[in-house]
Amino acid sequence: MKAVGLLFTCGLLAGCSPSPANNIGVYMLVDTSGTYREELKKAEQIIRYSLSRLDAADSFAVARIDTGSFSEKDIVARITFDDRPSTINRQKRDFAEQVSLFVQDARSSPYTDITGGLLQAVEYLNEKGPAEKTVLIFSDLKEDLEEGYIRDIQFNLDGFNVIALNVTKLRSDNVDPREYLERLGQWQAKVEGSGGRWQVINDLDGLEGLL
């Protein structure tokens, strides 16, 4: 009889205990270097699309890629959505407004520190601890570090999805396409070597699979 009571209590407690998290964490890196700044309108569209896909308890952050991207100062906007629908809608509108302001006022940076941004993304998402972690890199993936910046660092991207968006071809890529393919290959090797999953989406009309 006691055993039955204990089983019942355990079942009740198991039923009431918080279930495992099923929220999503998204960190989007937006390249603002050189001519890529002109692509920011597209980035804004992707951000808005991502906002429409996210829901209660999801985390979302947008950060710029500039000379030194491993910094909280580069985070343009960040939010962890509330669990009440009305508040979520308000948060989404505020977030979209912040991003619009950023797109209007963004300045072009002389260097491109993608690795630093990725490190910052990993740190942010690990801190938030969502069930699914996604890093969106809106860039041509051409890293150009200022002298003195050390980015030869090992990542731990276990459980991360890293998605490169709108990886445009540079003029030099047109001359020698191997450069472009090599660049993509290097990033893929870097991400997958660190335990992450790598994906490239260049057709921005086909974002349905994103998030």
Binding site: G15, A56, D83, I88
Partner: peptide, 8 residues
Amino acid sequence: GGTSLIGG
């Protein structure tokens, strides 16, 4: 709240 779960 929209996120809390009870028994799935």
